[in-house]
Protein backbone atom coordinates (compact mmCIF):
# COMPACT_ATOMS: atom_id res chain seq x y z
CA UNK A 1 0.00 0.00 0.00
CA UNK A 2 2.21 2.79 -1.22
CA UNK A 3 0.54 6.17 -1.54
CA UNK A 4 1.22 8.34 -4.59
CA UNK A 5 3.88 10.88 -3.56
CA UNK A 6 2.82 14.43 -2.75
CA UNK A 7 4.68 17.63 -1.99
CA UNK A 8 3.82 20.49 0.32
CA UNK A 9 3.49 23.79 -1.45
CA UNK A 10 5.46 26.77 -0.23
CA UNK A 11 3.55 28.69 2.47
CA UNK A 12 2.40 32.00 1.04
CA UNK A 13 3.86 34.61 3.44
CA UNK A 14 7.46 35.73 3.90
CA UNK A 15 8.90 36.94 7.19
CA UNK A 16 9.85 40.61 7.62
CA UNK A 17 12.61 41.81 5.24
CA UNK A 18 14.31 43.28 8.31
CA UNK A 19 14.91 39.70 9.51
CA UNK A 20 18.10 39.27 7.42
CA UNK A 21 19.77 42.22 9.15
CA UNK A 22 18.49 41.02 12.52
CA UNK A 23 19.95 37.55 11.94
CA UNK A 24 23.25 39.09 10.84
CA UNK A 25 23.52 41.32 13.91
CA UNK A 26 22.55 38.39 16.14
CA UNK A 27 25.23 36.25 14.47
CA UNK A 28 27.74 39.10 14.92
CA UNK A 29 27.40 38.89 18.71
CA UNK A 30 28.11 35.16 18.59
CA UNK A 31 30.96 35.70 16.14
CA UNK A 32 32.63 38.30 18.36
CA UNK A 33 32.52 35.88 21.29
CA UNK A 34 33.90 33.01 19.17
CA UNK A 35 36.71 35.18 17.73
CA UNK A 36 37.63 36.44 21.19
CA UNK A 37 38.08 32.84 22.31
CA UNK A 38 40.07 32.11 19.13
CA UNK A 39 42.42 35.02 19.85
CA UNK A 40 42.78 33.73 23.39
CA UNK A 41 43.73 30.31 22.05
CA UNK A 42 46.31 31.71 19.63
CA UNK A 43 47.89 33.79 22.39
CA UNK A 44 48.02 30.71 24.63
CA UNK A 45 49.67 28.61 21.92
CA UNK A 46 52.29 31.29 21.30
CA UNK A 47 53.06 31.85 24.98
CA UNK A 48 53.24 28.32 26.40
CA UNK A 49 55.91 25.85 25.21
CA UNK A 50 54.56 23.70 22.41
CA UNK A 51 53.49 20.10 23.02
CA UNK A 52 51.20 17.52 21.49
CA UNK A 53 48.24 19.85 22.20
CA UNK A 54 49.55 22.75 20.08
CA UNK A 55 48.14 21.52 16.72
CA UNK A 56 44.82 20.79 18.42
CA UNK A 57 44.65 24.35 19.78
CA UNK A 58 45.47 25.76 16.34
CA UNK A 59 42.75 23.60 14.85
CA UNK A 60 40.24 24.78 17.48
CA UNK A 61 41.18 28.41 16.77
CA UNK A 62 40.66 27.95 13.02
CA UNK A 63 37.31 26.25 13.59
CA UNK A 64 36.20 29.10 15.87
CA UNK A 65 37.17 31.67 13.25
CA UNK A 66 35.48 29.87 10.34
CA UNK A 67 32.26 28.57 11.92
CA UNK A 68 30.51 31.97 12.38
CA UNK A 69 31.28 33.08 8.80
CA UNK A 70 28.26 31.56 6.98
CA UNK A 71 25.85 33.05 9.53
CA UNK A 72 27.37 36.47 8.82
CA UNK A 73 27.33 36.20 5.05
CA UNK A 74 25.12 33.85 3.04
CA UNK A 75 22.97 32.12 5.69
CA UNK A 76 20.60 35.06 6.46
CA UNK A 77 19.77 35.44 2.77
CA UNK A 78 19.06 31.70 2.34
CA UNK A 79 17.04 31.64 5.54
CA UNK A 80 14.98 34.57 4.33
CA UNK A 81 14.28 32.74 1.07
CA UNK A 82 13.30 29.54 2.86
CA UNK A 83 11.33 30.95 5.81
CA UNK A 84 7.67 31.03 4.94
CA UNK A 85 4.44 30.92 6.89
CA UNK A 86 0.74 30.75 6.26
CA UNK A 87 -2.34 30.83 8.46
CA UNK A 88 -5.57 29.46 7.01
CA UNK A 89 -8.87 29.07 8.84
CA UNK A 90 -7.90 25.47 9.57
CA UNK A 91 -4.18 25.31 10.27
CA UNK A 92 -0.83 27.07 10.58
CA UNK A 93 2.05 26.04 8.35
CA UNK A 94 5.65 27.24 8.72
CA UNK A 95 8.79 26.28 6.86
CA UNK A 96 12.30 27.15 8.02
CA UNK A 97 15.96 26.13 8.07
CA UNK A 98 18.88 26.83 5.78
CA UNK A 99 20.87 23.57 5.86
CA UNK A 100 18.22 21.33 7.28
CA UNK A 101 14.62 22.05 6.32
CA UNK A 102 11.55 21.73 8.52
CA UNK A 103 7.84 22.02 7.77
CA UNK A 104 5.45 22.30 10.69
CA UNK A 105 1.68 22.15 10.56
CA UNK A 106 -0.65 22.58 13.52
CA UNK A 107 -4.46 22.55 13.20
CA UNK A 108 -6.06 25.55 14.89
CA UNK A 109 -8.72 23.34 16.49
CA UNK A 110 -5.96 21.80 18.67
CA UNK A 111 -4.20 25.00 19.67
CA UNK A 112 -3.98 25.56 23.42
CA UNK A 113 -2.07 28.82 23.69
CA UNK A 114 -1.04 31.58 21.32
CA UNK A 115 1.62 33.97 22.52
CA UNK A 116 4.16 36.34 21.07
CA UNK A 117 7.65 37.17 22.25
CA UNK A 118 10.14 39.92 21.51
CA UNK A 119 13.73 39.84 22.70
CA UNK A 120 15.68 43.07 23.30
CA UNK A 121 17.43 42.91 19.91
CA UNK A 122 14.14 42.10 18.19
CA UNK A 123 12.64 45.20 19.78
CA UNK A 124 15.35 47.30 18.18
CA UNK A 125 14.36 45.93 14.79
CA UNK A 126 10.61 46.02 15.50
CA UNK A 127 10.29 42.27 15.08
CA UNK A 128 8.17 39.77 16.98
CA UNK A 129 7.82 35.97 17.11
CA UNK A 130 4.41 34.32 17.34
CA UNK A 131 4.29 30.96 19.10
CA UNK A 132 1.43 28.49 18.85
CA UNK A 133 1.29 25.60 21.33
CA UNK A 134 -0.74 22.41 21.47
CA UNK A 135 -1.11 19.69 24.11
CA UNK A 136 2.03 18.04 22.72
CA UNK A 137 5.47 19.49 23.35
CA UNK A 138 6.31 18.44 19.78
CA UNK A 139 3.29 20.26 18.37
CA UNK A 140 4.70 23.77 18.70
CA UNK A 141 4.93 26.19 15.82
CA UNK A 142 6.88 29.46 15.93
CA UNK A 143 6.49 32.07 13.23
CA UNK A 144 9.77 33.89 13.74
CA UNK A 145 10.65 37.49 12.89
CA UNK A 146 7.38 39.07 11.83
CA UNK A 147 6.93 42.82 11.70
CA UNK A 148 5.45 43.92 15.00
CA UNK A 149 2.15 45.03 13.48
CA UNK A 150 1.78 41.85 11.41
CA UNK A 151 2.51 39.74 14.49
CA UNK A 152 -0.22 41.50 16.50
CA UNK A 153 -2.66 40.89 13.65
CA UNK A 154 -1.73 37.22 13.41
CA UNK A 155 -2.11 36.76 17.18
CA UNK A 156 -5.56 38.33 17.28
CA UNK A 157 -6.66 36.33 14.24
CA UNK A 158 -5.37 33.06 15.75
CA UNK A 159 -7.00 33.82 19.09
CA UNK A 160 -10.31 34.54 17.37
CA UNK A 161 -10.23 31.29 15.37
CA UNK A 162 -9.09 29.06 18.24
CA UNK A 163 -11.63 30.57 20.63
CA UNK A 164 -14.35 29.57 18.18
CA UNK A 165 -13.43 25.87 18.40
CA UNK A 166 -14.69 24.46 21.70
CA UNK A 167 -12.75 21.15 21.84
CA UNK A 168 -10.47 20.44 24.81
CA UNK A 169 -7.58 20.22 22.36
CA UNK A 170 -6.19 16.83 23.33
Amino acid sequence: MSLPPLTLREPSQRVSPKATTYWRVQAAFGAIAAWAIAIGLVVTVLLVPSGWWSPLLWLAAVVLVVVPLPALTVAPRIRYDVHRWEVTDIAVHVRYGWISRTDEIVPLSRVQTVDSAQGPLMRVFGLRTVKVQTASRYGIVSIACLDDAVAQQVVSRLVAITAATPEDAT
Binding site: P107, R110, A135, G139, A169
Partner: peptide
Protein backbone atom coordinates in the same frame (compact mmCIF):
# COMPACT_ATOMS: atom_id res chain seq x y z
CA UNK B 1 -2.31 17.59 16.99
CA UNK B 2 0.39 18.57 14.54
CA UNK B 3 3.00 17.41 12.04
CA UNK B 4 6.69 18.10 11.75
CA UNK B 5 8.46 17.15 8.55
CA UNK B 6 12.20 17.48 8.93
CA UNK B 7 15.03 16.94 6.47
CA UNK B 8 18.63 17.19 7.52
CA UNK B 9 21.31 17.96 4.94
CA UNK B 10 21.90 14.23 4.37
CA UNK B 11 18.16 13.54 4.27
CA UNK B 12 17.84 16.09 1.48
CA UNK B 13 20.58 14.45 -0.54
CA UNK B 14 18.84 11.07 -0.21
CA UNK B 15 15.32 12.50 -0.60
CA UNK B 16 14.33 11.14 2.80
CA UNK B 17 12.46 12.88 5.61
CA UNK B 18 11.69 12.40 9.28
CA UNK B 19 7.94 12.69 9.80
CA UNK B 20 6.79 13.36 13.37
CA UNK B 21 3.15 13.18 14.39
CA UNK B 22 2.66 15.28 17.52
CA UNK B 23 0.07 14.04 19.99
CA UNK B 24 -0.91 14.73 23.57
CA UNK B 25 -0.74 11.04 24.47
CA UNK B 26 2.16 8.83 25.49
CA UNK B 27 5.58 10.18 24.57
CA UNK B 28 3.80 13.06 22.78
Amino acid sequence: VGWRLRQSFWDRRLGLAQLTAATAAGGE
